[in-house]
Design a binder for these strands. Structure first.
Lengths: 396, 396
DNA sequence: CTACTTTTTCCACTCACAGGACAAAGACGA
DNA sequence: TCGTCTTTGTCCTGTGAGTGGAAAAAGTAG
């Protein structure tokens, strides 16, 4: 299939494309119910979209009591590539234009190997997905990186955990390689967009999405739109001070949240506890595996290990304290917790909830759900697909 | 003069009204340069505005080399009332449609006397301004109250420091009394709007406005618009924990920022220090005045009193710590410090700056001005006038 | 007084859009 | 099977918003 290059010609067309993306196939009449355009105008715009090839007619819709109508749907041949580069692994997925995941693969990889090596990996994974028959090419790609991004240009700026990426023209380079439009964003923002599109945040306009992985970040959604801040570093909550004069952090300060709780901190604490003989469970895992990760702690906790549970609770308290402050400040309608350590599950969630509900004022917490993300590792790639589709489905 | 009741009939007219409000009198040609409408269309819309009486023709503009044009300006007879209800005093001001303050009076009053008593006072002050010939009536009024507000209805919700106001229909009641449209908002949000309209934040889209008065609050501006949160309590940073297991706070928790630094806390600390004989300066002021306030501390600090300076520095550190967290999270383009304690001036500012620049990451602080508000007590009333003008200058 | 600018008005033309009329296609009861 | 009703899709015309050219009006500069 020839790749699509068309873009909606006006706001109406953009609106229709987004309705079809979010609501699936629809008849003209159903679309008409949603957009407040006259039937004639609607017909014109739909015809134009059909001409561009972005949408296709597709069989008959169910009858609503009278003449049956033909369905309109986004071209089922359209393909988006969603890429989520984490600190320690890469996720790549293919979606159709309705952002349904058709294929998803994960590969461990250290982001510090630098953009060239990571790109090679990403392209290999994309090729693999193509080879398995899921796509012949891509109409657009979204990519998330674990650090701040100058959003309009798609260039990482001063990313602490991926120094080799500073200033690397990610958008431009990937666009060259893939031959399609590309948008770049912070991985946390993409997770927020993913949960907004297909997860727990579907109906909420203002929410926070806290991602606890190797580091800690927070996606901020205001009025349905991701807020990125003046320099693209909004949501960088890993270096908020959680413990006065606490542990030294890589950033040079002491007591940063990330130094006390994160995938990396948790692994280190668990190893220490195991070596000090505080937990037989952790010690045996340390011996078997040669090292401990957040996954081991989760498993130990699930097995009832008191030390592991304490570590999680302690971390949840720290995180909850910081989130409580953010809740007071931002007064969100929902807080989503996600990222690698969601395996820690309800122990973590309970600790966070306790802190937030205790420390923030009732007006802010009264009707505030604090929940785990629904999409897991798919949130990032779904958000990435959503990012590029938002771009492509906007007037040029 | 008959009060204006007209509203702009479409978005173009609204746009023009706001240009005239923010930019003062303009010729048709100058307006045309700013709005991207054809000359004919512009002429039509201006004519309609002239018909409504919202704008008037007003003399000749300076020549730009050819035929001189007639100026168009907002009707100079329009009057807005700006009301800023603080914890311990009430400010009322009259502005014209360009939001220039024509008269401003202040009256000490405890907000806890309740809405009826306060309204009586506000109406008396408004009457006084009228009597002095500044206005014959009001075309709209904005009012700020020191607590969270359900914005669309203009009703305070669960305000901690003004319990008697909970659920009181401020907007409705004041609108009845004044016979004009009224909008109600949190006083901190109005301060932010004031500084945005006429103060230091004129050119910044995303900024924070921290008001330190009897309590502490923070106005949040995202993309030029005030962000109020899901329940209207966004920016309520007074009860963020600044000191683990710190002082007990009226909210039931310990270590809230407000318990450690605010007008009230500062007065209490100063009194304590004076009684313990730590500062002769403060002790003598305590004896003379019968009590100490933030103003006394400011004066003592200005006189070089070490204890007063320490108190201010200590408070600034606490506040700076909290602000540092907010800066990491929100990545604003500017932080404005305002409110009653701005009298503490540069000692306070320096302490805050030190903390923020030390604790937040360079990417967020790199180009981040932290400045005192420019408008002082006028910020609130200017913001209030701005609030109602934004409302009235939008299509009905 | 002339040449040139800028501002303003006037007017004809285009285009988006609404909404009515009508045809097409199916549902459903008799 | 037939006729009626409902829904859907197409065609067409009227309306109003808006553009841009032409010319008049009112200046400036020399």
């Amino acid at each position: 299939m020839r790749r699509m290059t068309a873009r909606p010609g006006n706001a109406h067309q953009a609106r229709l494309l987004k309705l079809l993306r979010d609501g699936g196939p629809n008849s003209r009449a159903q679309l008409g119910d949603q957009v407040d355009l006259s039937r004639s105008k609607l017909a014109v715009e739909v015809d134009r979209l059909l001409e561009t090839g972005l949408v296709v007619a597709d069989g008959l819709a169910a009858s609503r009591g009278g003449r049956r109508s033909h369905n309109i749907r986004l071209n089922p041949g359209l393909r988006f590539l969603g890429v989520d580069i984490g600190a320690t692994s890469v996720d790549v997925a293919v979606t159709n234009a309705e952002l349904e995941t058709l294929g998803h693969i994960n590969h461990p990889m250290d982001v510090r190997e630098g953009p060239v090596a990571v790109f090679e990996q990403v392209l290999a994974m994309a090729a693999k997905l193509k080879a398995s028959g899921l796509a012949e090419g891509f109409d657009g790609a979204g990519i998330g990186v674990p650090g701040p991004v100058r959003f309009p240009e798609g260039i990482p700026v001063a990313p602490p955990i991926m120094p080799g990426w500073d200033g690397f023209p990610v958008r431009e380079a990937l666009s060259q390689e893939l031959g399609c439009p590309v948008m770049v964003d912070n991985d946390v923002n993409l997770m927020a967009m993913g949960e907004q599109h297909a997860g727990v945040a579907r109906t909420v306009a203002d929410f926070l999405c806290v991602k606890i992985g190797t580091g800690i970040g927070c996606g901020i959604v205001v009025g349905g739109e991701v807020y990125r801040g003046t320099t693209g570093s909004a949501g960088d909550i890993g270096h908020i001070q959680a413990v006065p004069d606490g542990r030294p952090c890589a950033c040079g300060n002491r007591g940063c949240l990330e130094a006390h709780f994160s995938g990396a901190a948790l692994a280190r604490d668990a190893t220490e506890a195991a070596q000090q003989g505080l937990s037989a469970e952790l010690a045996s895992r340390l011996e078997t595996g040669g090292g401990l990760t957040a996954v081991d702690v989760a498993a130990a906790a699930a097995a009832g290990d008191a030390t592991a549970l304490d570590l999680i609770r302690e971390g949840g308290n720290r995180t909850g304290q910081v989130i409580a402050g953010l809740v007071s400040f931002f007064n969100p309608g929902l807080v989503v917790i996600g990222g690698g350590v969601t395996g820690l599950g309800h122990t973590l969630l309970a600790a966070i909830r306790t802190q937030v509900y205790r420390q923030s004022l009732p007006l802010a917490t009264g009707n505030l759900p604090i929940v785990l993300g629904e999409l897991g590792p798919a949130a990032g790639v779904t958000g990435a697909a959503r990012l590029i589709s938002d771009h492509l489905f906007s007037p040029a």
